Simulated assay, not measured.
Amino acid sequence: MNLNDRRRKLLFAGLVVVLAAIGIYLTVAAPAGEPDDADARSGGAPATSAPAGPASPPPGIEGTVNAGDFDIYRLLPFSRQEFATAADLAQRFVSAYGTYRFDETPQTYAARLSGLATDELGAQLERDAATPGLLEERRRNEVVAESTATLDQVRNIENNSVVFVVTGMQKVTKSGSESTENRRYAVTVAREGGSLKVYAFQPADVGQAGDTG
């Protein structure tokens, strides 16, 4: 038993010597300054928090609604800038629609509307302006019409379009006599190809659904 105890002690001492030698070898063999596995995985730099990305738009309005700073555009499918652009577009369209001369071609008239309306609506307006009876009547009476417009209200808002009620105020000279006439229109402005265009319009008392899909 004493001999066996002595052998076990010698064996343990030998293992300690071998492990110590291995540790010394690894320390000497590793290149100076080489990062360990943990440092390699982190790029050798101290850990830092990731930079904050751009803030996401708030999903809605939380908390108590305050009339003093209530932002309705947070709840609508159009931004403030888009609404302003659409309103200006509707107003300019009605002004241009009601402005014409007896001595201009239908193409000239349609060109004033081309940047405001969709291609389809613009083509329809050009065909209407080229109606033989209408052209003859304007030329015979030397009709000159000038129009301005006022925005009256927002009638309807959809995901892709907004309908404005616009009043066109037209001053007409016909056979040397002047007259004025006011007409209200429902004008649908819709997104098309990344921009806003007048998609449809008709007398305001008829109304229209407005959304284009």
Rank of each mutant, 00 (worst) to 15 (best):
K197V: 06
R8T: 08
F83G: 06
G176K: 08
Y109L: 05
L113N: 08
V165Y: 09
I157Y: 04
E82H: 07
R140S: 15
A32W: 01
R140F: 10
D211F: 08
R139T: 06
G168K: 07
R6F: 08
D152G: 08
R7H: 10
A190W: 10
P77Q: 07
R138W: 08
Y109R: 11
S95T: 11
A110F: 03
T27G: 13
Q91M: 10
R74H: 02
A21L: 13
V163A: 07
Q91P: 04
R191M: 01
I61C: 08
E120A: 13
A32Y: 02
F164G: 06
D69L: 02
G194E: 08
V172L: 10
S95Q: 15
N4Y: 12
V163P: 04
G98F: 11
V154D: 04
A21S: 13
G122H: 01
S177R: 13
T150K: 11
G194R: 09
P54R: 09
L125V: 01
S147P: 10
G133M: 05
V28R: 14
F83I: 06
K171L: 07
R101Q: 14
R8A: 11
D119P: 00
L121G: 02
L76G: 02
M169R: 14
N160D: 15
P132Y: 08
I157E: 05
S95C: 06
S161W: 02
N141L: 13
V172S: 03
Y185I: 03
Q81W: 02
L26V: 04
D71T: 00
M1C: 06
F70S: 03
E181V: 04
T64P: 14
D69I: 11
V172R: 12
E120R: 11
R127N: 07
T108I: 09
E82A: 13
I61A: 03
D88L: 09
S161E: 01
L113M: 07
F93E: 06
L26N: 11
E146M: 10
I24W: 08
V163W: 05
R112D: 07
D88N: 13
E178V: 13
L89S: 04
D103C: 09
L125P: 06
G193L: 04
R184E: 15
V206G: 01
D5Q: 15
I61S: 04
G14C: 12
N160I: 00
A145L: 10
Y97P: 00
V198L: 05
V65Q: 10
N182K: 14
E158G: 15
E137D: 14
T131E: 13
L125G: 02
R127Y: 00
A87D: 05
A32T: 14
Q81C: 00
A52Y: 02
